[in-house]
C-alpha cells in the first residue's frame, strides 16, 4: 500500500475531514498541483475549486472549497477554507437560488464592491453545482 499522510480540512464552522490519505490534488492560485506523502513543506493559496482526495482505502472523495490555504508540513496537510462541502451535502436548490441572485446583481450593475461580492458568490455556486452534478 502506498504511503499515507494526514489530511485535515477545517472551516470556521467545523472540521470537515480528518483522516489518512494517499494523495490529494488541488487547484492553487498558481495552478493545480498534487500532494503525495513526504512532500516538501509548502504553503499555498487555493482557488474556489474542487479538491480530490484519494484516501487510505484508495477511495476517491471530492470536496468543493470556497478559497483557502493549504499547508504541507512533515506529512501533515492542513486545508483552511471559508466553506467546504462534500459531494452529498450540496443543497442544489439553495445554491441555484444564490447563483441566480448573484447573476442578477452582476447584470443589473451596482458598485464595484457589490459586483466583486456577487462574482465570488457566483464562482462558489458554480463550483458547488459542478460537484453535485458529477
Amino acid at each position: 500500500m502506498a504511503k499515507t499522510f494526514k489530511l485535515e480540512i477545517i472551516t470556521p464552522e467545523k472540521v470537515v475531514y480528518s483522516d489518512s490519505v494517499q494523495s490529494i490534488s488541488a487547484d492553487g492560485t498558481e495552478g493545480s498541483f498534487g500532494v503525495l506523502a513526504d512532500h516538501a513543506p509548502l504553503i499555498t493559496e487555493l482557488k474556489t475549486s474542487i479538491l480530490t482526495v484519494n484516501d487510505a482505502n484508495n477511495k476517491t472523495i471530492r470536496l468543493a472549497l470556497d478559497r483557502g490555504f493549504l499547508e504541507v508540513m512533515a506529512n501533515n496537510v492542513v486545508v483552511l477554507s471559508d466553506a467546504c462541502v462534500t459531494e452529498g451535502d450540496v443543497n442544489v436548490e439553495k445554491v441555484s437560488a444564490e447563483k441566480d441572485a448573484a447573476e442578477k446583481t452582476l447584470s443589473s450593475g451596482g458598485s464595484a464592491e457589490e459586483k466583486e461580492k456577487a462574482q465570488a458568490i457566483l464562482t462558489r455556486a458554480n463550483t458547488w453545482l459542478k460537484l453535485a452534478n458529477k
Binding site: 470556521p12 492553487g28 492560485t29 498558481e30 498541483f33 516538501a40 513543506p41 509548502l42 504553503i43 499555498t44 493559496e45 490555504f69 508540513m73 512533515a74 483552511l80
Partner: peptide
C-alpha cells in the same frame, strides 16, 4: 519544525497579505 524551508506559492508576502485579514476575521468571529 524540522523539514526545512517552505515553498511558497505565490510569494510569502502575497500569501500573508491574504492570510492576515483572514486571521483578523476569524479571531473576531
Amino acid at each position: 519544525k524540522p523539514g526545512g524551508e517552505y515553498i511558497f506559492e505565490p510569494s510569502p508576502v502575497q500569501i500573508i497579505s491574504h492570510l492576515f485579514p483572514k486571521f483578523v476575521e476569524t479571531r473576531l468571529y
